[in-house]
Amino acid sequence: MSVSLSQDDVLKVASLSRLKLSEAEVNSLGQQMGSVLKYIAMLDELNTDAIEPMAHAIEISNVFREDELQTSLPREKALSNAPQTDGNYFLVPAIL
């Protein structure tokens, strides 16, 4: 595992994360992430080739709901927390 994060690495991850960072943040995050990743590298000691990954804390399967209608929210409620609407739609700056 690589443990040092360059400024470019940090900026690439920030872009994937949609986070606008100040220069100071880029520097401190690079350092902090680096030290955490260095610590995390201890997992390399373990051979896990034959181990099944465990994505859930408790193993369950086949949980369904029936195809039955539930009441939807009225539009005012659906839009009530939106930063910008026209009363019918969520509005965002021009996408194209």
């Binding site: 690495d9 991850v13 994360s17 949609r18 986070l19 606008k20 960072l21 995050l29 990743l37």
Partner: peptide
């Protein structure tokens, strides 16, 4: 996101995204 999240949240989002 940059303005509204605090340092720790940003740190963890960055770590997780990575």
């Amino acid at each position: 996101r940059g303005e509204a999240f605090g340092d720790e949240v940003k740190r963890r989002i960055m770590l997780g995204t990575y």
